[in-house]
Design a binder for these strands. Structure first.
Length: 778
DNA sequence: ATAGGGTTAG
């Protein structure tokens, strides 16, 4: 065994530091190997060590070696794999064995036999074991074998093993080929050890383009774009020509920093080096332009690619979705089918997300058809997206059917369906499904909790939080936000403060969403002072949502004037949004501040803000509340389309302004536009009847509530009817109504009826009602 | 030999 020759050769090529690594590796390998032989020969065990999880660290070796301290190494024998050998032990054993071997030379096993053993281990997935055997064998292997090892180390993320393979390669190969060392760099990068990768890069006596690519790719994939750019500069300066691969990584980094100018320069270089026809680089350029926010250039780039592949299409669809242009995303997805390229599952999911954001049920269903036609309905990504699409298009039953037909349901599809039921207000069904889930994570718990919060079912939400606390260990920012919503919903300032403490202790307060929820909680719990203090404390990281929350809490405290003052301060820091205007208008409405309300309206118009349905509804509400019905109607008429909520707002607004006739006229217009009235609308109609004294029409409406409008009569409708008959002295109708009522009347209802009986001297009904009231009291 | 996109649930 020519250890000294190895020594010499290695010495020549590698610097001091690497030399120690190699030589120690060699020593340990030899020692381990001979111990193996030795122990096997003796057939006796040694003391057992801890062994597990102890890594052999290349960088640590010199240090330990100098101090002659114990270095844990991976033993090789199967039987004694848990043994621990210190370096001192190893050295002495080695010495002894070397002497022994000199006296009694032993043939090392044949390379082929060792390869066979290693392959057996690799097939069993035992990479550690395989590496140990490789490491212990004091002879060079074929290069392809090393390459295989590096590949496996990458996929297992086995850094220790990768280091061992590199050591072995350097020790026993006269001239390790550059490409193998490039593989080593890649392995280190895949194991997230950039230090090892860069160290090896620095120490390599010769490099090729692949070496640079390996390092650049490493920095790019681990998210260090600036290092990528400086390495790229070094590379070109040292005269190495960048290849397609180099540009792929550089472009990925350009996308990560979203810098248009830089990206354009790189684009120029790509063209200059003649890589324009490369579909991968083309797709990357599409991606980069889109990430820089220039969809027009992205689209142009897309059209320059002669044959876009599935990835290219995926990029363009996804980027349109990110840019908020869901229509174009769906359009591009449909264009894909005029080519021979089949979309990937992620592309299907992106297109379906785009459909749900557009509520484009027709298109979503067409995509569903394609999915079935291509036999992709069992793909978990696609099927979960389908469930979501149906749910977001208000087709809960269809979503649920897709879920029921699913062959294999994973955590995501379960969570999707639970969330679907929870979000559409069916918390009982959602809970049933939730309890049936085979496994849950924090997202599933949050989905269920969000359902309770959305439906204002506070006591269920509280019970659920207690359950959640016992069942899962860690909550996240969404859970905390929801818990704050619960505190805000029940105005529980104390619990809110405790959650604040938890948030602070766990560092969640730096999350803007959590800190905004906190602000909202303080505002809704009526603690304006705490809200203001917290708002000031977040001055470093607050956003416009924080401002809106603060404005809302001013509005909550009937301080519309101060809200407006805050609004002008807000504009020094951030731009208002539609929520800002909604909040301000609500504050004006609640304080009947017509002057301020008009100011806001003027501001919206002057600054050219698009008035959406929600803002328009807020304006209508404000004008109604401020008794400015004409303006309200004018705003309503300015809408391109009107939903049931804005109609309800104006109809109820008319009633509050004692203008029942207008309310009924608007109702006719609403029906003519094809908007379906709901229970609120019908309450408005009944109130209009009360205002106008339309007893017969009111009765007719009430009687056709469920038959004509598909609305179940609620308490408030009964209230309206009682008020209608009582106020207009229709005692026959009132008596008939009270005696045939299918629900149990409330005490205020009975008192109202009794009042009417007394006023109209209708004692027969009065006695009946008195009895009922007495029954109530005792 | 190496490169691009994407993670559907709250």
């Amino acid at each position: 065994m020519s250890l000294s020759r190895q020594f010499h050769r290695v010495w020549q090529f590698w610097n001091m530091r690497r030399f120690w690594v190699v030589i120690v590796d060699a020593y340990v390998a030899l020692a381990a190997f001979f111990v193996f032989i030795f122990v096997r020969g003796r057939g006796r065990g040694r003391r057992r060590g801890k062994g597990k999880g102890e890594g052999f660290q290349r960088t640590c070796v010199p240090h330990h070696f100098g101090g002659a301290k114990s270095i844990p190494v991976k033993p090789i024998s199967n039987k004694y794999r848990e043994e621990r050998i210190t370096l001192c032990d190893a050295a002495s054993v080695l010495k002894q064995l070397l002497r022994e071997e000199n006296l009694n030379p032993r043939q090392p096993p044949q390379t082929n036999a060792v390869i066979q053993t290693i392959l057996t281990y690799l097939e069993a997935g035992r990479i550690r074991k395989a590496t140990s055997v490789l490491f212990a064998f004091p002879k060079s292997f074929p290069y392809s074998f090393y390459a295989l090892f590096f590949r496996l180390c990458s996929s297992y993320g086995a850094i220790v093993e990768a280091r061992k393979v590199e050591s072995h390669l350097l020790t026993f190969s006269r001239n390790p080929p550059i490409f193998l060392l490039n593989r080593a760099i890649e392995s280190y990068a895949k194991c997230h050890c950039l230090r090892d990768a860069h160290e090896l890069f620095d120490e390599m006596p010769r490099r090729d383009g692949g070496t640079w690519n390996a390092l650049i790719t490493a920095y790019s994939q681990l998210g260090f774009p600036n290092q990528v750019f400086s390495l790229f500069l070094c590379m070109t300066r040292s005269g190495v020509c960048p290849s397609e691969v180099t540009f792929a990584s550089v472009l990925a980094s350009c996308g990560a920093v979203s810098q248009l100018l830089l990206s354009k320069q790189v684009h120029g270089l790509v063209t200059k080096f003649g890589f324009c026809g490369n579909v991968i680089l083309g797709s990357s350029l599409v991606d980069v332009y889109a990430k820089c926010g220039v969809m027009i250039d992205a689209r142009r780039m897309f059209h320059e690619i002669p044959q876009p592949n599935a990835v290219t299409w995926n990029v363009i669809v996804r980027r349109y979705l990110d840019a908020g242009d869901a229509r174009e995303a769906v359009f591009m997805f449909s264009r894909m089918f005029s080519t021979a390229v089949q979309p990937m599952n992620f592309t299907f999911s992106n297109a379906l997300v785009a459909c749900s954001s557009l509520s484009a049920l027709q298109e979503g269903m067409q995509i569903h058809g394609v999915v079935v036609k291509l036999g992709l309905q069992d793909d978990n990504v696609i099927s979960s997206s389908l469930v979501n699409m149906y749910v977001k298009c208000d087709k809960l039953e269809d979503g649920s059917r897709v879920f029921d037909l699913l062959g294999s349901r994973d955590l995501v599809s379960w969570t999707s369906i639970v969330s679907a039921y929870a979000k559409s207000g069916k918390t009982l069904e959602a809970r049933k499904l939730f309890d049936k889930m085979p496994e849950r994570n924090v997202i599933s718990w949050n989905a269920m909790l969000a359902g309770y919060v959305r439906c204002f079912e506070w006591s269920e939400a509280l019970d659920f939080v207690y359950l959640m606390r016992n069942e899962i260990k860690y909550v996240d920012h969404v859970t905390l936000g929801l818990m704050l919503n619960v505190s805000a919903g029940i105005s529980d300032h104390e619990t809110g403060k405790q959650i604040h403490g938890y948030i602070y202790r766990h560092g969640f307060h730096l999350d803007i969403r959590v800190s905004n929820a906190l602000l909202d909680m303080y505002g809704k719990c009526g603690n304006l002072n705490s809200a203001k203090i917290w708002f000031n404390q977040m001055s470093k990281w607050r956003d416009r949502v924080s401002w809106n929350a603060l404005l809302a809490s001013y509005g909550h405290h009937q301080l519309s004037e101060q809200a407006l003052t805050m609004f002008s301060e807000m504009q020094w820091e951030t731009k208002p949004s539609k929520y800002t205007f909604g909040t301000l208008l609500l504050a004006c409405a609640n304080t009947f501040a017509l002057y301020h309300g008009k100011q806001i309206h003027g501001f919206i118009i002057r600054h050219g803000f698009q008035i959406d349905t929600i803002m328009r509804t807020a304006l209508v509400y404000m004008y109604c509340k401020c008794r400015c019905l004409e303006s309200a109607i004018e705003v309503l008429k300015g809408a391109v389309s009107r939903d049931v909520i804005i109609w309800n707002t104006i109809i109820l607004g008319c009633c509050h302004n004692h203008r029942g006739k207008e309310a009924l006229e608007l109702f006719v217009m609403m029906e003519a536009e094809g908007v379906k009235p709901d229970h609120v609308t019908l309450k408005g109609i009944l109130l209009a009847c009360v205002e106008e004294g339309l007893v017969d029409f009111g009765t007719e409406c009430f009687n056709s509530l469920s038959s004509k409008y598909n609305v179940l009569p609620r308490l408030e409708h009964y209230n309206c009817m009682i008020e209608l008959y009582s106020r207009h002295g229709s005692m026959h109708e009132l008596e008939n109504f009270m005696r045939t009522m299918t629900i149990e009347p409330t005490l205020p209802m009975l008192e109202r009826v009794l009042d009417a009986c007394e006023k109209n001297e209708w004692s027969r009904l009065g006695e009946y009602i008195t009895e009922k009231i007495n029954a109530f009291k005792y």
